[in-house]
């Protein structure tokens, strides 16, 4: 019985080690994903809501973002642009 138990343990250990290294080698030699490339047509399907852009590198126009605190009402100029 002891011999069978030891044999089983040994078999599981060896199988695990070989599986691990086998998987490693397989992944190391697999094809790498190509970097995403796309061209923007003049008119394209709308993008879904993008995630929050917090730095320059995410902003294709080369612009940047900055947070602004709303100004209190009493400081407001009469001319205001708000859209319609």
């Amino acid at each position: 019985m002891k011999i069978i138990k030891r044999g089983m343990r040994l078999w599981i250990t060896i199988a695990s080690v070989f599986s691990f290294f086998g998987g490693w080698i397989l992944l190391a030699h697999a094809n790498k994903p190509a970097p995403l490339q796309f061209t923007q047509p003049a008119i394209s399907a709308p993008a879904s809501n993008s995630s929050f852009q917090s730095n320059n590198s995410n902003f294709p126009s080369g612009g940047f973002s900055f947070p602004i605190q709303s100004q209190p009402t009493f400081n407001r100029p009469i001319l205001r642009t708000a859209g319609s």
Binding site: F52, Q53, S54, G62, F64, S65, P67, I68, S70
Partner: peptide
């Protein structure tokens, strides 16, 4: 202006 109140500007 995005939904978080951040203002983004052109270059």
């Amino acid at each position: 202006v995005d939904q978080f109140g951040w203002v983004l500007g052109s270059k």
